[in-house]
Write a protein that binds this DNA or RNA. Structure first.
Lengths: 228, 228
DNA sequence: ACAAAAGTGTTGAGAGTACACCCATGC
DNA sequence: GCATGGGTGTACTCTCAACACTTTTGT
């Protein structure tokens, strides 16, 4: 058995957990109960355990805060500036997660005053360098939206085309043409019609669709295929 | 001052250093002199120092192995499987670097038998999980080539259009149409003609061009702009 | 004069964008 | 019957892809 004689930083994972709520892109934040940054909002996260894979640590934190599993999770970036944590050297591996809009139930035990959703584009002041992490996550999400199907991870299993379009409009921050959007989605061949209709609204019911691909899909054959 | 009571993994950086040599995409590898994997080839890398930023550590390793600075460097992914290093818990932050083809001089002190370039698509057996890191770097490089100007980082400051095209063909692994390629590059407006010509060849000399943008540039306004 | 790489335009097909009206339902 | 969101087609423009010959130089 060999050992190392090198300084060992602490390693954490931090999560940017996105969902769509009230027609806005929102993120989950936790209010810190301890110094430093006591009382400030921060990204959920925590230390990586001794024999725990990084992604496993991220999934564990996600489960602890939201009770949700089986969500889209992607490693984002690793931040390691020596001064990013006033307590000492802490390197953090950041992840972003997408929660479907019908699964955003928080843990029963969580105190609503301490765990809350905030609009991603108007977050409160954040602890540490979490604002930088958030900004990076937003940029990545917007980019990926254009050439992958990540967007579908934010919707329930069955959804209307208008709901899908709203996800894209919300994240991209601009309006899309309804007819062009629908033609494009159909052309991609990634949706399945169901026989059901959404009867909630007061007006004409919309047909519900289901996403065909299992989890996630790159959308390029030659060049890009999702430039709405 | 606060301290943590958590296990601390060792943290390293590993580099996938690309260049174009003999018309092929190649990577720099180092032969390990110690167990584990003694005698195997491995990616250059090393431990992150106590008060050293991650990117600074990557730049330091790069300088130590190649004597090169001011190159394109990008964080790739952080690998942290508990069993990836038999000596204990080691988390590695991987980077990829692009070295211009006229700057691939190795450190004078390096022993040629211990530091060598290898074709990126036919590497020797690698230590640890370095093959996985290499594969990931290759995938990322190919993707970025299509919507950014990273490819220019592999060329000298002045280059011919044919050389530029060969970089793209080499990395993408397919042939491109000369006329379409040139029209596209011209349309992007990122090159500057020089008055010089490359007189090396035996035949008609080619005009030399210079890359306008300082370092690196995203190439999308609406959708992708670089789908050669 | 010849070998070799440099350089240069046109055409057809497909995708993106802009744009306006009828339909189905609840009240 | 009316208010509201659901649903549908066409025309123009622009970019992509395929394709072959002339030019310039060294030997």
């Amino acid at each position: 058995m060999y050992t190392y004689e090198y300084p060992r930083p602490a390693v954490t994972v931090d999560l940017v957990i996105f969902t769509i709520r009230d027609g806005r892109l929102q993120i989950l934040l936790i209010r810190r109960g301890e110094a430093p940054f006591k009382g400030r909002w921060a990204l959920p996260g925590g230390f990586v355990r001794e024999d725990e894979d990084l992604e496993a640590a991220a999934l564990r934190e996600l489960d602890e805060e939201t009770g949700v599993r089986d969500v889209y999770l992607e490693q984002l970036f690793t931040f390691g500036e020596p001064q990013r944590d006033p307590r000492g050297r802490v390197i953090t591996v950041s992840y972003f997660a997408l929660i479907a809009s019908d699964r955003q139930v928080l843990r029963a035990q969580t105190d609503a005053a301490e765990v809350q959703w905030f609009p991603a584009d108007e977050p409160p002041a954040l602890a540490f360098d979490h604002r930088k992490i958030l900004d990076y996550a937003l940029e990545r999400l917007r980019n990926k939206l254009e050439y992958t199907t990540v967007g579908f991870q934010l919707l329930p299993r069955k959804f209307t085309l208008t709901e899908l379009q709203q996800v894209y409009e919300t994240i991209l921050g601009r309006e899309l043409d309804k007819r062009n959007f629908r033609r494009k989605v159909e052309l991609l061949g990634i949706l399945e019609e169901t026989d059901e209709k959404k009867m909630e609204g007061v007006h004409r019911p919309a047909r519900l669709y289901r996403f065909k691909a299992r989890q996630f899909e790159k959308l390029k054959d030659k060049g890009i295929l999702f430039p709405f």
